[in-house]
Design a protein around this nucleic acid. Structure first.
Lengths: 102, 102
DNA sequence: TTGTTTAATTGCAATAATACGATTAATGTT
DNA sequence: AACATTAATCGTATTATTGCAATTAAACAA
């Protein structure tokens, strides 16, 4: 029904389609690494909610987490983020017509 | 709770978060203009479903439609698409850390 | 006017997403 | 071992999204 590319773009975009996940990602870029509890405080959502959002980001491969004692340190997965960026640019930067058609 | 930027990025991404809307946009880029009925055939969804997706894209300002007799011609809104692209690039092209932190 | 074509709207059923309290799991500390 | 800390999972209520049949609306044609 849809091309693989269309499905993948939609999957990525869906993950960006919630402000909490946008906020989490921006925070990870800003401070380079973060703990679930810190994010919960920073963003203002309950810990299970943040954990759930982190899981979605992790499932897509955009972030990774490593256990550090009793905490889990999350950060951007640079390689996958770069790959994702290429796909999204491909979609966003399509050649636009010279003039509005209507 | 979230910044305006975060909310706007999420709103845009949410619209891209369904393969049907990705397909519609790609088709509009490809053939420069399209009618609702053509999209319905091309994509394989019922006319009301396509109409609904078109409405969401229009609400966000990414496309515009002009009545052409009994049909409605849809096309990309170049100006708004360009604006949207800038916002998304701002988000996607954040400075990534030199090395994985974890 | 009457019919034809196309798109929008309505109503509704099915599914998915979101948020969080309660609990469990894992690790570290005393 | 017993406790403390942190994050994941479970269960569940609420809300949002999706898809479409049926209908309505709008424009044109005969």
């Amino acid at each position: 029904m849809y091309t693989d590319q269309q499905k993948e773009i939609a999957l990525i975009a869906k993950v960006f389609g919630h402000p909490a996940r946008v906020a989490i990602l921006q925070q990870l870029f800003k401070i380079d690494a973060c703990y679930c509890g810190d994010l919960s405080e920073e963003i203002g959502l309950a810990q299970p909610t943040i954990s759930q959002h982190l899981k979605e980001l992790k499932t897509l491969g955009l972030i990774k987490g490593t256990v550090e004692g009793v905490k889990v340190c999350y950060c951007i997965d640079i390689e996958n983020w770069t790959k994702m960026k290429m796909l999204m640019h491909q979609f966003l930067d399509q050649d636009i017509p010279k003039a509005d058609c209507c």
